[in-house]
Nucleic acid binder design. Structure first.
Lengths: 146, 146
DNA sequence: ATTTCAATAGATGTTGATATCTATTATATG
DNA sequence: CATATAATAGATATCAACATCTATTGAAAT
């Protein structure tokens, strides 16, 4: 609901990265374990995070992924966008090409309310906050079996 | 975004019904025209609205669909549910079977905020309100060419 | 009665997101 | 240097949502 699978996977993975200690890389497999995302698929998603500049990757023995930006500098929308979510074009519920305050579709004002609250959430929630919340939930998520 | 195609189609169609004068049935084709939903597919969705009791259908010449409930008695969540949206089970973003305030996933509190604002929107927006808003937008939507 | 309109039902087709597989490239460690 | 580890890339497979098609049933109008 709300977000497609890929977007949700990206949020899970980035949550894992924020929770990790970030002194040594965390491998795709470890992240997959934590997040429950199929590991090969996760690799592809992480690639996008690398391309967007939020993550550094290290090949070879002992390699993996590392956050390359302060968690406070990344918000949910950033990650969604990097994962391919079309942030700008939140399409009209009525399918209008151009649906704006002038020339709106019949559901425009209603739909706008929903979009606004989503955007509020996505732009204002940073991964610093996510890391803190996640830490409260479990001091040891990385060892838990899903 | 947010809702799958079918759910959005259902909202469009019900908006059309609320906008109609409700003294004579509006046909699947007319509704399709208004809403831009493929007409055969719309029929299937309308069937669900009929089964849920929000709409009456009339076969044969001059037939079509009629609201069978006061618009103020139907909210967005009602229509989504009737269209097959799993209202109760808003699945955990981390894929946990049971994700609750106790035994939460790492993203639980963050995700909950989003769900809450969605639910607030879906439960508290009635089709009475939708009808009024839609009426303000166009006095004559039914004659416009998409 | 017959014709025409329109919903209903079920079968089938299409497509895009999701997932997997295989091979390749890069790098740390013994 | 050899080996094991791990990311990357591209091809392919899977599946469910979405959409269409065909035939049938029901009801109004002439």
């Amino acid at each position: 609901m709300f977000l497609n699978q890929t977007s949700q996977y990206a949020l899970r993975a980035m949550t894992g990265l924020v929770r990790a200690d970030n002194t040594k890389p965390i491998s795709s497999n470890e992240l997959a374990q934590y997040s429950g995302v199929p590991s090969h698929y996760l690799s592809k998603i992480m690639r996008k995070m690398v391309e967007a500049g939020y993550v550094k990757s290290q090949k070879g023995h002992g390699g993996g992924f590392l956050l390359s930006v302060e968690p406070s500098k990344i918000n949910i929308m950033d990650v969604l966008t990097a994962a391919g979510f079309e942030a700008g074009s939140q399409p009209c519920v009525f399918g209008y090409e151009k649906c704006e305050d002038k020339n709106p579709c019949p559901l425009h004002p209603i739909w706008k309310r929903l979009k606004d609250s989503f955007n509020e959430w996505a732009f204002n929630t940073t991964f610093e906050e996510i890391g803190k919340e996640a830490a409260l939930i479990s001091r040891d998520d990385f060892n838990q079996n899903n």
